[in-house]
Design a protein around this nucleic acid. Sequence first.
DNA 1: GCCTAACCGAGACGGTACGTCTAGTCTTAGA
DNA 2: TCTAAGACTAGACGTACCGTCTCGGTTAGGC
Lengths: 193, 193, 193, 193
Amino acid sequence: MVETRKGRPRSESTRQAILRAAADLVSEVGYADLTITGIATRAGSGKQTIYRWWTAKSGIVADAVVAGYLRVPVVPLRATKSLADDLTSWLAATVDVMNDPAAAPLVRALAAAASDDGQRATALWAHLTGPLHEALSERLTRGQAEGQLSDSADPASITDALIGTVLFRLLARQPTPAPLGGIVSALLGSNAP
Amino acid sequence: MVETRKGRPRSESTRQAILRAAADLVSEVGYADLTITGIATRAGSGKQTIYRWWTAKSGIVADAVVAGYLRVPVVPLRATKSLADDLTSWLAATVDVMNDPAAAPLVRALAAAASDDGQRATALWAHLTGPLHEALSERLTRGQAEGQLSDSADPASITDALIGTVLFRLLARQPTPAPLGGIVSALLGSNAP
Amino acid sequence: MVETRKGRPRSESTRQAILRAAADLVSEVGYADLTITGIATRAGSGKQTIYRWWTAKSGIVADAVVAGYLRVPVVPLRATKSLADDLTSWLAATVDVMNDPAAAPLVRALAAAASDDGQRATALWAHLTGPLHEALSERLTRGQAEGQLSDSADPASITDALIGTVLFRLLARQPTPAPLGGIVSALLGSNAP
Amino acid sequence: MVETRKGRPRSESTRQAILRAAADLVSEVGYADLTITGIATRAGSGKQTIYRWWTAKSGIVADAVVAGYLRVPVVPLRATKSLADDLTSWLAATVDVMNDPAAAPLVRALAAAASDDGQRATALWAHLTGPLHEALSERLTRGQAEGQLSDSADPASITDALIGTVLFRLLARQPTPAPLGGIVSALLGSNAP
DNA sequence: GCCTAACCGAGACGGTACGTCTAGTCTTAGA
DNA sequence: TCTAAGACTAGACGTACCGTCTCGGTTAGGC
C-alpha cells in the first residue's frame, strides 16, 4: 500500500536552495552571525518554509554539510614509507589549515553547530570526520601490516586521539603547544618502558 | 610614578557583581542564551558599564572563570600503582561528566566562548585546562619515573592527546566510540613493533 | 436557451458552509480578526475554493448577511398612539443595543466591512437597514396620516437622520451625548419659528 | 518636592516624527494598510519605541489627529441670511467632500480607527467633530435668535442629527439617497402638524 | 459507460507584518 | 568622570495569514 499524502508536495529545489544559501552564508559570515532571515532572503524562500522543515539553525547547517554544499578542507594523507612521517606532516598541515583565517571560522562554526544539537550532531560529525577517520585508520592499519606499529594497537583509538588533538589545538589555541612529533611518537609507541 | 586618573574610580564591587551574575547565568541558561541585558539586570548594573569594560560576551565569561566564579567540574586523578588504570578511569569518569546533562552545557558553553574570541580564549583555556594539564603531566612524569612509561615519551604531548580525546568525544558524540582502554594503551606505548 | 456548463457543478453545500463559518466567526472574533484561513478551516473547505468565488472578505460577510446567517439585532418599533414616544423609545433601545458589548462588535464589523468595499456595501446596507428604514418610514407615514407630523415632511429624510444619529452615537461614543428626546422633537417638528 | 525620574527622558522629536509618519502614511495608503513597521521605517525610529508608548494603531492615528498632523477636510459653514440654505449647502458640500476619492479613505480610516478602540475614540472624535459641532451649533443658535428656528429646539440635538446623516451617507453609500433639502427642513421644523 | 472539464480538500509556496527580544549607543541625574 | 537608569535605532526572532500554486481525488454532464 503506497503512502499517499494530500496537499502540495514539498519542493526539493527549495530545500536545495536553502541548504546552498546556508552553506554560502556560513562561510561568509560564520555560524554565529548566520540568521534564518538571511538564509531565507538569500535562498529566495519564505521564512516559514524554513521553520516548517527545520527546528534549529544547526540542523540546516548539518544538512548542508551532509548534502555536500559545505566542504570542510581535508588535508590529504601522504603515503610514504614512514608512517610516523606521514602522520606528523598530516597533523602539521591540518593544524595549519585549522588556523587559516579562512577555514577556521567554518570549522569552529561546525563545532558550535554540533554543540547545539546532539541529535543531528552525530550525522554531521560522521560526515565530517568519517572519511578522515577512515583514511587515518587505513593508513595506520597498513603501517601495522608493515611492522611500523604494534599488532596489539587499535587503529581506531589512535585515530580518535589524533583528531581530538587537532580539535584541542583548534579550540584551545594554546600559546606554547606541545611538539607534534612528540604526540605522534606517543601514539605510535616506544612509550613502553 | 603612580598613574593617577581623574574622575570617579572604577567600582570593583560592580565588576565583581557583573562577573558573578555572568557566572550564575551561564550555568543557569547556558552560554548561548546568555545576554548582556540579562547580566546587567542580574548584577544591578547599567548595560553601559559592561560595554565600557568588555567588548565581547566571551570576555566576561573568561574573566568570570579566571575570577573563580565559574568552576568547571574536574575529575580528580587517582594515584594507584598503575598509571594505565589511573588514566583509563580518569578518562571514563571525565567522559561521563562531559555527557552529564548538567555539566555538558557549561563545558560546551566554554568551548563556544573560546570559539568566539581568540584573544581571551587563551587565558580561559589556560585557566580551565591548566591545572588539569599539570595534574596529568605530573602523573605521567611520576609514572615515567616508576618505569611505566618510556623515558623518551613526552608527558606534555600525551596530555594534549588525552584532553583532545575527551574534547572529541564531547563534541562529536559518536554512536560507537572506540574503547578508552585502547586509547590509553596507545598513548602509553606497546605500540612499538 | 439554457447555459449549460461542463464539468463538476459548484457545490451549494460548500457555499453555505463557508457563509455559515464566516457568520459564526465574525460574531465570535469580530470582522477585524476574521481570516480567510479561519473561515476555510471552520467550513472544512480549501482556501482556493473561497478565493475562486469571492475576491474580498467583505463580500463573504455581505453574502452571509444576505443569506441570513448573520442577523443584526433590530429593535422592534412600537406602535402606540404617540409617534414621538415610539421613536424616542426606539432610539433609546437601539442606542442601548449598539453599546451592548455583544452586539456592538458585530455592527462595527459591518460598518468596517462597508468601509472596505463600496461595491458590495450597498447590497449589505440595503439588507441591513432596508427593513429598518421601511419600518421607520411606515411608522412616520402613519403618524403623518394621524396628524402627528406635518404633511410636507419627508418620512425618508427623517428616517435617514434617525439612522444617521444612531450611527454617529455608535462610532463617536461621545461622553455627554445630546438628549434623544431633543433629536426626536427636532425631527418631528415644532422647530418652526 | 519635584518628581525627578532617572534615566534618559522621552524624546519629543521622535514622538513627533512617529505621529507625522503615521499621518503621512494614513493619507497615502489608508488606515487598513497602515503598519507599525511602516511607521517605524518612515519615522526612522525603532519599532520598540512605538510599542513602548502606544498599544494600538488607532492610538497613534488619534494622537496624530490631535497633534494636528492629520487634517480632516472641513467644509466652512456659510453665513447668509437663510439658516436653511446655509445648512443645505453645507450638507451638500460635505457629502461631496466625503465622496471625494482623496478624502473619503481618510475619513473612513478614522471611522475605522474609532471602531477599534473606544478609549481613544472619544478624544479623536472630540477633536474631529468638536469644532464642526460647535460651528453648527452656533449657526443654529444664531438662526434661533433670528427667529428661523423654534426657541424650544435644541441646537446640539439637531447638530448630532446633521453629522449623523453625513456619516450614514459616507458609510452606507445608498444608491438613491433622500434629498438633502428634505432632511434640513425636517430638522428645522415645519414638521409640526 | 466512458471521457473529461471543473470542482473539491489539503497543504506547501514566497511574502509581509506582527509583537518580542537583544545588541549596542546615547542622554540624563546623581554620587 | 563614573555609575545607574532607561530611552533610543536597528534588526533577528518565531508566528500568523496572505493569496497563489500544485497535488490526488470527486462528480456531473456529453459522447
